[in-house]
Design a protein around this nucleic acid. Sequence first.
DNA 1: TACCAGGAGTCTA
DNA 2: TAGACTCATGGT
Length: 251
Amino acid sequence: MAQIKTLDFDIAFTMDSGQTPTFTWAKNENGYTELSTGHKLPLNLRELSQSEKYAKMFRLQDDVSSIYEKISEDDLVLSAAITKFGGLRLTHCDEWETTVAFILSQNNHIKRIQKNYFDVHTTCGKITPENVLKADISQLKLGYREKYLKETARLIVENGFDLTHINKLNVEDARDALQELPGVGPKVADCILLYGFGKVDCFPTDTWVYQGMEKFYEVKTKDVQAFAKERWGKHAGYAQQLLFCKARSEL
DNA sequence: TACCAGGAGTCTA
DNA sequence: TAGACTCATGGT
């Protein structure tokens, strides 16, 4: 499969790094196909950059080289991660698809999240709150996540929870609002904000990131958020993605 | 077979 | 309020 691989854009690293597209796009020998639309991902940088959809999805407005330079200043850990995963970009996808993917992610393996998401897509057709609410997903072996998905869809469809309203809130209020959804706690809320709402100052901390922070920086669990905010500030999301990939490959 | 996984909700001290 | 426990399922 031909791949885009430049200093600031490696499509394979980006698509396979556990962000929303890892779950909402199917990988095959010819490239990537979006489950919701059947669209094939152009593997041509010019074509991608001329598309509003893909420019947003891959955050092509971000000067990744400059961001990497800033967050790796006097930081051997991130310098090494950037050498290893250069071209890894953050993605910005649909907020509802991101919410579904990360509700399914809790206490789950990436491979199985992919299967769970694909099964929900196959059963519901296009994954919308309405379709999730009315579909019978009881045979998909989602485990206890099934009821979280159903109840979250119900809150949106029947109780007027407005996901798009989140975008108008500041990050702290948005995080609190998202946690009103069943199955959404601090970590899943941060993933939704980062990958679904483009809040790149968020720093989702899963087991890999916690392990990485302790191993690479000797930061204890309770201090991780404050450390990340202080050290990487508005670029914390990029640091998190690099640390996640580094931890998964080395620990 | 045992442990763990891009955790959250609930119980208990 | 903090820490322990429980939840469903399957990858490693």
